[in-house]
Design a protein around this nucleic acid. Sequence first.
DNA 1: TGTTGATATGTTATACTATAACGATTAGCA
DNA 2: TGCTAATCGTTATAGTATAACATATCAACA
Lengths: 156, 156
Amino acid sequence: MIGFEHHNHADCISTSVEAADNYCRTAGLQLTPARRRVLEILLGEHRALGAYDILEILAKNGFAAQPPVAYRALDFLVKHGFAHRIERLNAFVACAHPGIEHDPSFLLCRICDAVAEAQSDAASGRLGKVAETTGFKIERAVVEAVGVCPNCRGET
Amino acid sequence: MIGFEHHNHADCISTSVEAADNYCRTAGLQLTPARRRVLEILLGEHRALGAYDILEILAKNGFAAQPPVAYRALDFLVKHGFAHRIERLNAFVACAHPGIEHDPSFLLCRICDAVAEAQSDAASGRLGKVAETTGFKIERAVVEAVGVCPNCRGET
DNA sequence: TGTTGATATGTTATACTATAACGATTAGCA
DNA sequence: TGCTAATCGTTATAGTATAACATATCAACA
Ligand SMILES: [Zn+2]
Ligand SMILES: [Zn+2]
Ligand SMILES: [Zn+2]
Ligand SMILES: [Zn+2]
């Protein structure tokens, strides 16, 4: 599972940025320098980063250091599916399946903060059934499992 | 589903407070005035309230108006299962099944802010399987479905 | 009874997260 | 070119949460 396993991380980054690039060109979206840089920053880690963590890195990269700079880029990335917001952490993570329509769920390690993305089936599982019989229309499901990742087993 | 349907709400409150009372007596916990009042406030609404909403009401009830007053009471209620935190809303809701061991999930209406609590099976569903094969140990699952409740269907 | 340790409260200050607002600039297109 | 929408720069402020420390309460128990 990407996020917990060793892998060729440089590939991980370059293919995702390239995918975002292509998608934006096709869809008429602007992957501006700040947006691209934030995506790269997120891709650099398989964990969630807070907006202010990102802002700090942006500042070192010569971008303005005001919160809206980070939030605007993050809003763009989340809106177009290049990144996801982790509600539990008030933080953001790069999407592991960019360009593919999906309904993400997450495994969050409380020890090392690693994040892995999986597919969600909340809307079709038990909760979906409850919603259906109740007449509730699910538009989006936040599914975030908190626990201990394989690398941290045995460490408290 | 409690939260979306009409029901005898006075009962809803009194039985839950009584249950909390009994549980605390048995478990040697102190349901102090502030804690009890916060529980009553939460029970008064089938929706999530922010800590500062609660603080405001506490202040009108003669309690001190500093954030820790609300947060401490909420921490107690959440810790002992009388209330739940809704990550998506940075807010809190009274538990609909106090005293029963459970793993809650929520249906959140984005129109009227009503909240309904259901059982979660995230740890035993698809995500649970992924976690198991990965070696990730799920300790807790945040499951919050955002959508439109039966009472708000047809209103946007 | 008096000590002690655990729990709860009062209070001040501060940290962290997020958005409003508005003017300047730029990109894309008729 | 001129128009329009999108983006960016910047300041200010709103909203959420916790650190820290002093005080108070209460039960266990020597
Ligand atoms: Zn990688
Ligand atoms: Zn994704
Ligand atoms: Zn509950
Ligand atoms: Zn509703």
